[in-house]
Nucleic acid binder design. Structure first.
Lengths: 264, 264
DNA sequence: CCATCTTTGTGCACGCGTTCACAAAGACAT
DNA sequence: ATGTCTTTGTGAACGCGTGCACAAAGATGG
């Protein structure tokens, strides 16, 4: 999960739990696929399988939206597509600005899933004057001096930050000052924003590290039966630094008292 | 949060809760920054602020790793960097393959955060023969025919999927069959994998839709006091489809009994 | 050596989210 | 109309994650 709500302590908005909101797009995608295949109705079991969730969870999720199913039959696909779209606010158009048109920003600008569902790239913005005017994905890049003007004139409320980490906070501040109240952050930094502004982050590096953790655990369990003088990569490249004032004493680890992590 | 563990039902691995694991990279990043500024120790309060979390939560998180702090002083920065790195498995090298070198794949290949911490791009793979041999971010693209060979020879266990949604599942199947056990999926699809394989997904479209939901709610609360004949964008572009067999009867919504969602 | 002060580590309670299991509701056949 | 069968909607129980609040630990100064 490359995400994580930064702000707003899980207050359930209008009675819809945050966890449910996060799954609605998943359901919507599955339903859209069914709709394109002209499937008229779908059961909670089928739809849950398509979305990769438990069917009971799906039914409870839908129950927060209202009673949109028919017992003995299932859910009307078209009707549900509309209800979820409306609940997510996708029946209206959301202009979005992308700030930072490097490799990633360009990729985002060209992302097809953008325009498809209510989102419209209102502007691409970069601080590099050499980029100004250059078309990316068919849209000319504008200089960051124009940022405030664009946001106010176009009524942009969603901003995407794809800049280097170093400038992300100040870009964020400018976006917020200009009126943006929702930010999708791709820069590897913790953004601080005032109350009322939502931030979601997408962080490749964090995702990989979480995968590495589980991967290591898998590998560790396999080789646990084998000799402890492990076959590979068990020895760290660098020696662990000693804690301040420590003279190499033992530390209380979760495995009990072991010598301060110093394999061989 | 652009992520979401797909598999493995929140089983706490070796006593460390999943939620804690997801925060460790955050702490590590903050600690690395402190380390570069040669800060020797840090209190839970300071570190928590830098990572954007509650200090009690941080202390509890660290308590799962062991007792690495000194009461009255705080945590030794270097020591903690090492401990967390080790816990996350970053003291060893993880070769990674990226499949699908379009805009996004190229951006990922060029992402600096990759090499910095234990991850190494072992290969870039694309199905388009025209791409083969072309260097992207300094690495020549290889044809997907080579996929199995590369994974086995290099011992790759982590794969990144940046292909179109249509082929993501079959790419995934090939990766898994060749030995990959951790997958980071950027394609907007639900991947199904056998037990023992971890999948994390990063989905721009879902993140935007979640933001739109909250954005809509904010706008709704503002205009609630105003006239209901809303100023803008309140009228859906398409009429809501009627549910199967419905003759336009009322539906039980969460707001009570209202006429089936048909504004004006 | 003792007192004071800072900061960790954690017991406890609370709330959210998930899952089970079942009654109610409706479709459909006879 | 009545009975059967399918599938929804939800009450209830459980487990995880969070945050409070405090006791224990150790540093520091006299």
């Amino acid at each position: 999960m490359a995400t994580g709500r930064t702000h707003r302590p899980a207050t359930r908005s209008r009675g819809i739990p945050e966890a449910t909101v996060a799954r609605l797009p998943l359901y919507l995608r599955a339903l859209t696929a069914l709709s394109e295949r002209s499937v008229p109705t779908v059961s909670s079991e089928e739809l849950a399988a398509a979305a990769g969730v438990n069917s009971a969870k799906l039914r409870k999720d839908f129950s927060y939206l209202g009673s949109y199913g028919t017992r003995g039959v299932g859910y009307d696909v078209e009707y549900l597509v509309y209800q979820i779209s409306r609940e997510l606010g996708l029946t209206q158009d959301w202009p979005v600005v992308i700030v930072g048109i490097g490799n990633l920003g360009a990729a985002l600008a060209g992302y097809g899933g953008f325009a498809s569902r209510g989102f419209r790239v209102a502007a691409l913005i970069d601080a590099d004057p050499a980029m100004t005017g250059k078309p990316v994905a068919g849209i000319p890049v504008q200089h960051s001096d124009e940022l405030e003007k664009i946001i106010e004139e176009d009524g942009v409320s969603i901003g995407v930050i794809a800049t280097p980490a170093g400038v992300a906070q100040q870009v964020c501040d400018r976006l917020v000052a200009a009126g943006v109240t929702s930010i999708l952050n791709f820069a590897p930094t913790v953004l601080s924003v005032p109350d009322g502004v939502d931030v979601r982050k997408v962080d490749l590096s964090i995702e990989l590290q979480i995968l590495a953790f589980h991967e290591q655990r898998k590998a560790g369990e396999e080789s646990n039966a084998e000799a402890d003088a492990g076959a590979e990569a068990e020895t760290p490249a660098v020696a662990p630094p000693a804690p301040r004032g420590s003279t190499g004493a033992t530390r209380k680890g979760p495995d009990g008292d072991v010598p301060a992590v110093m394999p061989a």
